[in-house]
Design a protein around this nucleic acid. Structure first.
Length: 140
DNA sequence: GCCAACGTTGGC
DNA sequence: GCCAACGTTGGC
């Protein structure tokens, strides 16, 4: 099983909405690196749900329940083979893990979230996954 | 609101 | 195909 991190501005789509809807398509990715990460996701993979801009913290865990398929949010005339996946809310963090906390710990210096702050879908290593779950007060 | 990082566009 | 200009993202 692989691990990932997905970012959303809570103004547009928040963890609370994800929990309410339970299963939700992760649409709107318009970056090739992020798209490739979406395509690499397998059913059962887990991802951290990160709130950008407002909060700037990881708030929960989602599970991939449907692998990449064409993004229905593509506008007519829009170019590109953009895809989305379906995510299911799994469990919240007991304690949200803030960007500041991750930045303060050298163990996370090579986390893509920190190294490439604009990438909206990024991989997370096993070691980072377990460490961040521990900080969040939840089981991996 | 500002600015750095980075992707995209368009002139040459 | 290079590179400057511009737009967008996201932290501060």
């Amino acid at each position: 099983m692989a691990y990932w991190l997905v970012k959303s501005e809570p103004d547009a789509f928040s963890w609370e909405q994800q929990v309410l809807n339970r299963i939700e398509p992760w649409t709107g990715v318009r970056n090739h690196m992020a798209k490739n990460n979406l395509k690499a996701m397998a059913k059962g993979d887990r991802a951290f749900f990160y709130h950008s801009n407002i909060g700037k913290e990881i708030v929960g865990i989602v599970e991939v329940v449907r692998t990449a398929y064409p993004d229905p949010s593509i506008e007519p005339g829009e170019k590109g083979d953009w895809v989305c996946v379906d995510m299911k809310a799994l469990r919240p963090f007991k304690t949200p893990v803030t960007l500041a906390a991750l930045k303060a710990d050298p163990a996370f210096a090579d986390l893509p979230l920190i190294r490439m702050s604009r990438l909206s879908v990024s991989p997370v290593s096993d070691a980072h996954w377990h460490a961040i779950c521990a900080l969040g007060g939840t089981k991996p």
